[in-house]
Simulated assay, not measured.
Amino acid sequence: MTEQAKTYYDMQNEYPLNKEQTDKYQEDGHIFLTNVATPEEIAYYEEQITSIVMELNYHDKPVSERDTYGKAFIQVGNLWQKSEEVKRFVLAKRFAKIAADLMGVEGVRIYHDQALFKEPGGGHTPWHQDQIYWPLDTDKTITMWMPLVPIPQEVGTMSFASGTHKLGYVNKQFISDESHKTLGQFIEGKGIPQVNYGAMSPGDATFHSGWTMHSAPGNPTEHMRKVMTVIYIADGLTVAEPDSKARESDMKSWFPGCKPGDPAASPLNPLVYSRK
């Protein structure tokens, strides 16, 4: 790749947001944005990300023989450490500034990235809250969810339960049939509005809070649903005392060397945007 192409694909330029968009995110806990990455950028990075995901795919059973979590997707994290090319994507200033603007914070760090590839015949992703896994006591977390390939209506994108980010910790159930049933009943019982943004193009993105309840349907098609996610946390946070084995595991994995009370700023959590 030429030096000119490298500069182009660094994605350092800004994606402007207006007050209506930031207000909507603050109210709903989720938002849909179009053309966050260009077709050219996505075409290049899709190839890089897919190569790593296929190499590191840990599944050794057919989809039909896995549990609910295993059926949901191929999941590979911290790709930014495995490729200098993917590092440019994950640490892109353009994405990070959107995250900071939506949360209304001065700067953001990476928590980690995850490729989530839903295979042909892959199962649904149950209702859940991301942040039950994260050793952080804050509402200043956000995930960018960006398709690398077209996602037609029949494959489906995520559904969000609007306003649930304001509730914080609702229950401790991890992604499972139980979480889908319990949170689904909670959402229906409270009459909480559900939003699905429908078909998405490569380079479109949704952003949602760590506490926003969300789910996704299965993949009934013969095509892989390829999605890349990046999780951001506000700069200046501290690591919370883990209150579950999952949070203890996440502390060791994503905040290596950090103890409760330490800044949430290990070498795996670089500062990717700051207004200062």
Rank of each mutant, 00 (worst) to 15 (best):
W254T: 04
D10M: 12
H30M: 09
A43G: 02
Q185K: 15
G191Q: 10
Y232V: 08
Y15I: 09
M228C: 09
F160C: 04
S51M: 07
T22I: 09
E27I: 01
H112W: 11
D130V: 00
S209N: 15
T221L: 01
T238Q: 11
V90D: 11
R275C: 10
V53S: 02
T22C: 08
S176E: 04
T34Q: 14
E84Q: 14
N269I: 01
S253R: 15
E47L: 13
P16R: 03
W254Y: 14
T2A: 09
Q131S: 04
K276D: 11
G107K: 03
G104R: 09
D177H: 13
F73A: 15
F186S: 00
K252R: 15
T2H: 05
L167S: 05
W134L: 04
W127H: 08
E20I: 00
P62F: 10
K118P: 05
P150E: 15
V149T: 15
W80E: 08
E119K: 03
R247L: 01
V170G: 01
Q194R: 14
S83Q: 07
V105D: 02
G123S: 05
G156Y: 03
P39V: 08
E106K: 15
V195C: 01
T229V: 01
P62K: 12
Q185A: 14
S51G: 08
P242A: 06
D28H: 12
A199P: 01
F207R: 01
L102E: 00
M158R: 09
P217F: 07
S244M: 10
M228L: 13
V105H: 05
N171A: 05
T138R: 08
I233Q: 13
F186V: 02
G210M: 03
G257W: 12
G70E: 05
G104D: 10
P16V: 04
M213K: 04
K19A: 14
S162Q: 06
P242D: 03
G184E: 03
E47M: 12
K19L: 12
I142G: 02
S201H: 11
K87H: 14
S253G: 07
S51A: 15
P126S: 07
V149I: 10
L136C: 07
P193S: 02
I31A: 10
L268S: 07
Y15S: 03
Y58G: 01
D130C: 02
V227P: 02
K71H: 10
A234R: 07
H124R: 15
K82W: 08
Q129M: 01
N18E: 13
I142N: 01
S215C: 15
F186C: 00
H165K: 07
D243T: 12
I52S: 07
P256W: 04
L17H: 06
Y58Q: 14
T125N: 03
D130T: 05
A92V: 02
Q173Y: 14
P270T: 01
K93Q: 15
V108C: 03
V149G: 00
L116A: 10
Q81P: 00
S51T: 15
G261Q: 09
Q12M: 11
G122P: 06
D243R: 04
K140I: 12
T68C: 11
G29R: 04
T50E: 10
